[in-house]
Computed example of a mutant assay.
Amino acid sequence: MGPVPNLPAEPDDDLDSYVGLDARTAEERARARGWSTVRTLPPGAIITMEYLRGRIDFEVDDGTVKRCWRG
């Protein structure tokens, strides 16, 4: 059997705290809190739904974060 991967821990973060922020502020805050990947998407974007540990996703409309989720 192969070795167990050593996965990085995800930040213990309140995702609701990003809703209502402007996209730039949200991205800066997420990176400062330890998220390795920050993805900004427009409403209704077609995306793959694979889970990527350490990624935070923002749905941004008119420069404001409307929704936020992990991975």
Results as ranks from 00 to 15, higher is better:
Leu15Gly: 03
Gly71Arg: 07
Ile47Asp: 10
Thr40Tyr: 02
Pro3Lys: 11
Leu41Ala: 00
Leu41Glu: 12
Arg55Phe: 02
Asp13Lys: 03
Glu10Trp: 02
Glu27Asn: 02
Arg33Pro: 01
Thr25Lys: 14
Ala32Gly: 09
Gly71Trp: 00
Thr37Ile: 09
Thr64Met: 07
Asp57Gly: 02
Ala45Tyr: 09
Ile56Trp: 07
Val65Phe: 04
Ile47Trp: 04
Leu41Thr: 03
Tyr18Gly: 00
Pro8Gln: 07
Asp16Glu: 14
Asp57His: 09
Asn6Gly: 03
Val38Gly: 09
Thr40Asn: 10
Asp61Glu: 15
Arg33Lys: 14
Leu15Asn: 07
Trp69Glu: 15
Asp62Gln: 14
Leu41Ile: 11
Arg55Tyr: 03
Leu41Gly: 00
Pro3Cys: 04
Thr64Gly: 03
Thr40Gly: 01
Ala30Pro: 01
Ala23Asp: 10
Gly34Leu: 10
Met1Ala: 12
Pro5Val: 06
Ser17Gln: 14
Met49Gly: 04
Arg53Asn: 13
Ala26Pro: 12
Pro11Arg: 03
Glu28Arg: 11
Asp61Lys: 14
Pro11Val: 10
Asp12Phe: 06
Val38Gln: 06
Arg39Ile: 08
Ser36His: 08
Asp12Trp: 02
Arg55Asn: 10
Gly2Tyr: 05
Pro8Arg: 13
Ser36Trp: 07
Leu21Ser: 04
Asp61Gly: 12
Glu50Phe: 11
Gly44Trp: 07
Arg70Met: 02
Gly2Asp: 08
Thr25Pro: 01
Glu28Gln: 13
Pro5Ser: 05
Asp61Asn: 08
Asp14Glu: 15
Trp69Ala: 13
Asp22Trp: 01
Met49Asp: 12
Glu28Pro: 00
Thr40Lys: 15
Pro43Val: 05
Gly34Pro: 09
Gly54Met: 10
Asp13Pro: 01
Asn6Val: 06
Ala9Pro: 01
Ala23Gln: 14
Thr48Arg: 12
Val38Thr: 11
Leu52Tyr: 02
Gly44Thr: 12
Thr48Gly: 15
Arg33Thr: 13
Leu41Asn: 05
Arg55His: 05
Arg33Ile: 00
Pro11Gln: 10
Pro11Met: 11
Arg53Ser: 10
Ala32Gln: 10
Asp62His: 12
Met1Gly: 14
Val4Cys: 02
Ser36Gly: 13
Arg70Ser: 13
